[in-house]
Design a protein around this nucleic acid. Structure first.
Lengths: 141, 141
DNA sequence: TATTGTTATACTCTATAACTATA
DNA sequence: TATAGTTATAGAGTATAACAATA
C-alpha cells in the first residue's frame, strides 16, 4: 500500500518545501563565488545603498543585529566591504572594487536563479503569485 | 534618503520571506503543544499511515535518516509513538492514545494556520498559487 | 533613555561520515 | 551489495541576554 502524504496539499507546507528547494538551489549556485545567500543579499543591498549602516540592513532584511556583526565581519575580512565612520557609533558600509566585482557576479547568479524559478509558472500567473507571497510575508502577526 | 530594497520584488526572495514568516507563526502556535513543526508533521504522517517506517517518513518529508532518529526518539520518549518490529531491521510506527490525542490537537492548529494564511489570498487565486508552489518544489535540480 | 554595534550562547534544522545489523 | 537505523559531528540560520559607547 502506497503511503499517504497528508501534508502534500496544504498550502503552508507547499510554501515551505518550495522555499527550501529554491534556497538549496541558490546556495549551490553561489558556491563558486564562496557566498551564502544571506551574504550575497547583503552585498546587493550595500551596492544599492552606499553608506547604509548594518542596523539598517538588518531591519530591511530582518536579520537580527547580533547576526549582522559576524556576517559583515566576514565580508570585511575578505575586503569586499569597508566601514566608514558616520558618527561615533555608526559606520556606513561601502563596497570595495573587489566587492563591486563580486556583487555583479552574485547579481547575475541571482537573476538567473529567479528566471529559472519563474519559468515554471505560467507567465500570466506570475504577478499574482508574487503578490500573494508578499501578502503572506506580512502575515507574521 | 530612504534605503532601497533591491530584493523586494524578486520572487525567490519573496518566497523565502513568506515561508519564513509562516514557519515562525506556526512554531509559535505549536508552543502550547510542545511540538515543533517537523514533529507535528511526523505525527500527522504516522496517523495517516499506521506502521510506516521512519525511513519511509524521511523520504516523504525529505528529512535525512540521520535526523529522523532523534526526532522519533523524542516522540517515543514522550510516549506519543510506539515502535513495532516489522522485520529484523525495520520498525513500524504507530501512535499511542496520547499520540492520537496530541495529533488531533496539532491538526487543528495546522488547519487553522493554513486557513489564516489562505485568507490573505483572493479565493479565485488559491488553486493557482498552490499549483505554482508545487511546481517550484520539484525545481531543485 | 534609546540606539548602535558587539560578544557570547543556545537552539533548530540540515548535512556528512561512519558504523551495526539485516535484506 | 543495498537498505534500515543509529551515533557523532559540523555547519548555517536564528534567538536571547548582556554589555560598552554614543545619541
Amino acid at each position: 500500500m502506497l503511503p499517504v502524504d497528508p501534508l502534500r496539499d496544504l498550502p503552508g507546507y507547499a510554501l515551505r518545501r518550495a522555499s527550501s528547494a529554491a534556497m538549496q538551489k541558490l546556495s549551490r549556485e553561489l558556491v563558486p563565488l564562496d557566498l551564502r545567500p544571506s551574504e550575497a543579499s547583503v552585498l546587493l543591498v550595500i551596492d544599492a545603498n552606499a553608506n547604509i549602516t548594518q542596523s539598517e540592513i538588518g531591519r530591511m532584511l530582518e536579520i537580527a543585529g547580533a547576526n549582522m556583526a559576524p556576517l559583515i565581519g566576514r565580508l570585511e575580512k575578505r575586503e569586499l566591504v569597508e566601514r566608514q565612520p558616520v558618527d561615533g557609533r555608526s559606520q556606513g558600509l561601502v563596497l570595495t572594487a573587489a566587492g563591486r566585482a563580486l556583487c555583479a557576479r552574485a547579481r547575475k547568479v541571482m537573476t538567473s536563479h529567479e528566471e529559472n524559478l519563474m519559468a515554471r509558472i505560467p507567465a500570466n500567473q506570475r504577478a499574482a503569485f508574487v503578490a500573494a507571497l508578499q501578502s503572506l510575508w506580512d502575515s507574521d502577526q
